[in-house]
């Protein structure tokens, strides 16, 4: 009994705060203990107000771009590093996942602004810089997940088996390796996507007028209009929640092993 109560308390520690923006976003007003009325107009406002709508599109473009960049550079790197037993290889394997810990985003943001805010490298203050910043923040997560899936796969054994059957490097990648590391890569992609959609700190440092993402609008609306802020917050909660569900599903499949996945 006590344990069940404790379990419920531990669940509500996360769930109750997450419910706040969601309840707020469906209410006409919420001044007292209980919210009143039901409406969808704050969600409608995101789509009809030009600034939030364009911020929503920017956010989606940036998130997809950041996922693509991190994926395209970490997946081949994880493949190569998994086979590299030199001290250099081990050093990269250990360092890359903790980069954001050693160099916190706020310092990376400052460094990016300093490096790319004057000719010939005028990247700062537009959407490209936001994409690069999000890729840098997401990279350790993507790298960790892709490397982990190569490790658990025993990729070398599979590759050697495929090679002994006459498959060249390209065939080994397309038919053997990529299908097997796909769940791990998808987990990494979902984490990077969710982080990118919600990222505020570095974005607000490097984004100019053309790089306005949804969290930057949320930051303004928390001061101006809590109702629109509630709809944006809820959207971000749904996004995290969806990727959390997808990640749990994928992780269960990874644990279940390749045989169950084929069934």
């Amino acid at each position: 009994m006590l344990k069940r109560l404790l379990f419920l308390f531990l669940i509500s520690f996360i769930v109750v705060p997450l419910c706040m923006p969601v309840i707020f976003s469906f209410s006409l007003f919420w001044q007292d203990i209980f919210p009143q009325g039901f409406t969808l107009q704050w969600y409608e406002a995101i789509l009809t107000r030009p600034r939030t709508y364009s911020a929503l599109l920017t956010s989606l473009v940036v998130a997809f771009a950041a996922v693509s960049i991190t994926l395209l550079i970490s997946a081949p790197a994880a493949y190569a590093l998994n086979r590299m037993d030199t001290p250099f290889g081990r050093w990269i394997r250990d360092t890359a996942p903790i980069l954001t810990l050693i160099f916190p985003p706020v310092t990376v943001g400052t460094a990016l602004v300093l490096a790319f805010s004057r000719p010939p490298l005028m990247l700062s203050g537009n959407v490209w810089m936001v994409i690069i910043a999000h890729s840098l923040i997401g990279l350790p997560f993507m790298f960790r997940n892709t490397l982990a899936s190569f490790r658990t796969l025993n990729e070398r054994l599979l590759s050697e088996a495929a090679a002994s059957l006459g498959a060249n490097l390209w065939q080994r990648l397309v038919y053997v390796i990529i299908p097997n590391v796909m769940p791990g890569i998808l987990v990494g992609a979902l984490v990077v996507f969710a982080i990118s959609i919600g990222e505020f700190e570095v974005t607000s440092m490097v984004a100019g007028f053309t790089g306005q993402t949804l969290p930057l609008q949320l930051f303004q609306q928390i001061r101006n209009d809590m109702r629109i802020a509630s709809a944006i917050s809820s959207f971000l909660v749904y996004n995290s929640l969806l990727s959390f569900i997808a990640i749990s599903y994928l992780s269960a499949q990874i644990r279940g092993g390749p045989d169950r996945r084929a069934a």
């Binding site: 923006p21 982080i195 930051f219 917050s233």
Partner: peptide
């Protein structure tokens, strides 16, 4: 897995949630 959720959650959402709460 629920406790891995805050990892991806925007700091602004948390701020909003706690203002309301």
């Amino acid at each position: 897995s629920l406790y891995s959720l805050p990892l991806t959650l925007s700091g602004l959402v948390v701020a909003f949630a706690f203002i309301v709460l």
